[in-house]
Amino acid sequence: MDIKYINPFINATINVFEDFFKITPVVQKPYIVKNNEDHEWDVSAIIGIAGEARGAVVISFTETLAALLTSKLVNRPVSSINDDVIDTIGEVVNIIAGNAKKGLEEYRLMISLPSIIKGKNHQLAWPVRNLPIVGIPFKTSEGPFNLSVGLENIITV
């Protein structure tokens, strides 16, 4: 796997967690995501990438972690997925994708507005055929989360 193009996403993720939530996530071993694979996440934020490469960035959380991160931003307890949680994780994926573009400047890329998918064990389907999706698990002191990145013709395995 060519990790050169994964690193901007990893660095952007660590940066936003440190600045927003005062948490330093620890990256685990990246893996290739299988289409429609089951997982234990409760909510995902997705942002599309267009321009000189097509793809998407997805960040997935448990309800517990998404609520806890949101509570840090709104300074009050949050216990379930509400509008504030949706706002928070949408902004997190927006910042990760936008910041990662700095490390991918040889390609002119545009990012979409974020979308949120919620539901216990929801599935993510990636419609672009033969697009390798790299899953990047992170651990934090408050629980794990997962970043998935697919970029046509840029990220290869």
Binding site: I96, A100, K101, K102
Partner: peptide, 9 residues
């Protein structure tokens, strides 16, 4: 004030 960090942006 934006997430867009690329120089071309």
């Amino acid at each position: 004030v934006t997430s867009e960090a690329a120089k071309y942006n």
